[in-house]
Design a protein around this nucleic acid. Structure first.
Lengths: 193, 193
DNA sequence: TTGTTTTATTAAACCTGTTTAAGTTTTTTG
DNA sequence: CAAAAAACTTAAACAGGTTTAATAAAACAA
């Protein structure tokens, strides 16, 4: 159940929060049940909400000039996903957000976030930690993109997140790592010898 | 003066903060005066502090396998710079942080940050906003890295931050954008015709 | 369970950006 | 101000990864 999942998650960041306060906090969220391939956020539409994944897997992507799909982020259980620049500016999203698997997510609108922070200031600390951690990860991601060849990126990722490599289609993984599915086939072929 | 600069900056994020509270907050920081090319944070040394630039320009970089320098981030007035992953884990920094120009920065150690947040919880909001904004920018950066060719990246950057292109050496800019100084020369040559 | 759609593989031709190495210009320093 | 160091330019050979197009395998729906 998504309320219980959110409670356990928030508790990891704010250990002394009570069940009853999270009950209150939960009312600011809206639960969404998504079918596989269902789209939550369309490109060029207003970005209203941040999405928290309770179950399943989502990804954000845009369509490149040549018509192919570029995945920018994945989110699995207990991760947030959003076009944060568009969210902050309440502007049109550059990205589409789609369920990779059948998923359950909690949606938090801009207005709800503002109200939530006003009425539960302890959540400032929660989000400070979430964004700090996310920014640190994004920084490392840029570092890896510069530091490693495409082949190294794949092996690095595959050894750190083996379950994840099983979980998503390879063409999405290739896209996320910044190369073509054809090249991923080649990498795998070469690695067998 | 760095105290006044910090006050004005924090006020942009927390409008109702008083001068006297910022006086208190300021005591958690240490002012550093850096000569051009001086190194604040060495690679493979413990990352103890986040750095806030009051005046000047810093960059973070690492040395690639082929011996050349890879700049990951720049910070000018009112920006923070740090290897956040190393800072959070109090582990060894992957990055060197160096002054590009003679600079004045405020250093905030991990212990000081913790104490600051404990005694001035209003700063949770400040840092939540800072990290949210930084993460949004980092996300867009990854998007641009995927979306644009090297040449497009340069023109995009040059048109958005013309003063900055003047301010830093071109080989650092090329490195930041993910290509070689030789290729930047070529881009500029081709654009003249 | 069969037909249809989606995902993965293979290989050759190609292209964007790198490497190397030399020369030129600009900036810094004594 | 002169000398040295740092930054920038040029061009040719090269490499990492893409594109295209065709085939094969797997997943899905009727």
């Amino acid at each position: 159940m998504s309320k219980e999942f959110l409670f356990k998650h928030i508790q990891k960041f704010i250990p002394f929060i009570s069940q009853s306060e999270v009950e209150q906090i939960y009312t600011y969220f809206t639960e969404l049940n998504l079918k596989k391939k269902e789209i939550v956020q369309h490109e060029e539409e207003l970005c209203r909400s941040m999405l928290f994944v309770c179950k399943g897997c989502l990804h954000s992507y845009y369509i490149k000039d040549n018509g192919s799909l570029q995945t920018l982020d994945f989110a699995i259980e207990s991760w947030w996903i959003c076009d944060y620049m568009a969210f902050e500016n309440s502007s049109l999203s550059d990205l589409t957000i789609q369920a990779v698997e059948t998923s359950i997510v909690l949606s938090l609108s801009r207005e709800s976030l503002d109200a939530l922070l006003q009425h539960h200031p302890v959540m400032e600390q929660y989000f400070r930690r979430i964004f700090q951690r996310s920014y640190a990860a994004a920084q490392k991601r840029v570092q890896f993109l510069y530091q490693y060849s495409r082949e190294e990126l794949y092996f690095h990722f595959a050894s750190h997140y083996p379950e994840f490599v099983q979980r998503v289609p390879q063409y999405l993984l290739a896209s996320y790592l910044g190369f073509t599915p054809e090249y991923l086939s080649e990498i795998k072929k070469n690695s067998l010898r």
